[in-house]
Computed example of a mutant assay.
Amino acid sequence: MLGDLIGIDDRTVLVAGQELDLAHGRPDVANALVHRTGDTLVLVDTGVTEPFRAALREAADRVGPWSRVLLLTTHGHLDHVGNNDLADGLGVPAEHYVPAPDLGQMRDPVAYWVRAFERVAGLGVLPGPPRETAEEVVSLFRPLRPFGATTRTYEERPPERIRIGSQRFGGWTFADGAVRVLRSQGHCAGHVVVHLRDCGVLHLSDEANGPCGPMADADQLKLQTALGSAARLLEEGEAAVLTDGHTFALRRGAAAVSHLDRMLDQAAALHAAALELTAGPGPVRPDAFAAACAEAATALGVTGANPNPLFTAMMAVNLLHALGLRPESPAPDAPWSRPGPPA
């Protein structure tokens, strides 16, 4: 599976990653896209690990010839950025862009994951203290080279209003408009989506990980808006192929729309279930809520990248936030309740 090349057309390849396996010390590796437009090689994310790096080189050779490289990072998570220095080693002029809101986590991924794990420290899902767990997780992602000689942020470029079919987006265009980078910021603070105009590929990266984002900097409204916008682009024929960061397959046309609609339906159903679970008069125990939320997600058929108790608990905490509840104290196992109106 890792490094399999899934052909989309004669100049576009999806390079398949792998799932996370913490128990066996195996990192997850995000899918990457390799595409050629004119004389430009476009890389969307670079995964992590040396075998995946070799697969990227093989894919680049398959879609050639090219004399320039454009590397686009969808967001700063470890499984997407490990081989970002690859662009500097291809022997041609290169450009590399990353989202400015994700620079912090790219520079100090341990601090980012400590923050994520501290939110679930009282739920019994961490194998150790938050910092120890974060350091262990980050250590799995090797080599980790998120920056190259040409790395810049998208936000250093003038913002553009991009119209695709009936929809308007904010973002940036490259290669005379053949490559569109659309701001989405749902899965995490800096997330972008990439649309390859000429082959009709819409790459959602991790916005499609599931109906509710687990990350501490996730925005559920933006995530679900990204899914809805993607469905509209497919319905209007502005996109023909849907890819993402962790589904090792292609979805086309009506099947892709159905997949997105299913996630949006699950998001509404999960929110309703969470609302019912917090409807009582007293405070909510986060550990009990997380367990009940996991049962509800299973009953609803909710799936996503890396389904495990840790990420399910992180999702549950985000649902509590989305419903307006807040912890009553800084203690890891503090009960949650809805703040009342000011006196």
Score class of each variant (00 low, 15 high):
Met1Asn: 09
Leu2Tyr: 08
Leu5Tyr: 04
Ile6Gly: 01
Ile8Gly: 01
Gln18Ala: 15
His24Ser: 14
Val29Phe: 05
Val42Trp: 10
Leu43Ala: 03
Val44His: 13
Asp45Asn: 10
Thr46Tyr: 05
Gly47Asn: 08
Gly47Arg: 02
Val48Cys: 13
Thr49Gln: 14
Glu50Gln: 12
Glu50Met: 10
Arg53Gly: 13
Val63Tyr: 00
Gly64Tyr: 00
Arg68Gly: 01
Leu70Gly: 01
Thr73Pro: 02
Thr74Trp: 03
Gly76Lys: 13
His80Gln: 10
His80Glu: 07
Leu86Pro: 06
Leu90Thr: 04
Ala94Pro: 07
Val110His: 05
Val114Phe: 12
Ala116Val: 15
Phe117Leu: 15
Arg119Ile: 14
Arg119Gly: 13
Ala121Pro: 10
Gly122Asn: 03
Gly122Leu: 03
Leu123Met: 15
Gly124Leu: 02
Gly124Thr: 01
Leu126Phe: 04
Pro127Ile: 09
Pro130Met: 09
Glu135Leu: 08
Val137Gln: 04
Arg145Glu: 14
Phe147Ile: 04
Tyr154Ser: 04
Glu155Met: 03
Pro158Cys: 08
Arg161Gln: 15
Ile162Arg: 08
Gln167Tyr: 03
Arg168His: 09
Gly170Leu: 09
Gly171Lys: 11
Trp172Arg: 06
Phe174Ile: 08
Ala178Glu: 15
Arg180Ser: 13
Arg180Gln: 15
Gln185Gly: 03
Gln185Met: 08
Gly186Ala: 03
Val194Arg: 12
His195Ile: 07
His195Asn: 05
Asp198Asn: 11
Asp198Lys: 08
Cys199Ile: 02
Gly200His: 06
Val201Gly: 04
Asn209Ser: 15
Gly210Met: 06
Cys212His: 13
Ala216Arg: 12
Leu223His: 11
Gly228Lys: 14
Ala230Ser: 11
Leu234Ser: 04
Ala240Arg: 10
Leu242Ser: 03
Thr247Asn: 15
Arg251Cys: 02
Arg252Leu: 12
Gly253Phe: 13
Ala256Ile: 05
His259Met: 13
Asp265Val: 08
Gln266Glu: 03
Ala272His: 05
Ala273Lys: 06
Leu277Tyr: 12
Pro286Arg: 02
Asp287Lys: 13
Ala292Asn: 11
Leu300Thr: 09
Asn306Leu: 01
Asn306Tyr: 10
Pro309Trp: 04
Leu310Tyr: 00
Ala313Tyr: 11
Leu319Tyr: 00
Leu319His: 02
Leu320Arg: 01
His321Asp: 12
Ala322Val: 10
Leu323Tyr: 12
Gly324Pro: 09
Ser329Leu: 00
Ser329Gly: 06
Ala331His: 14
Ala334Tyr: 13
Ala334Asn: 06
Trp336Pro: 12
Ser337Trp: 01
Pro341Gln: 02
Pro342Arg: 12
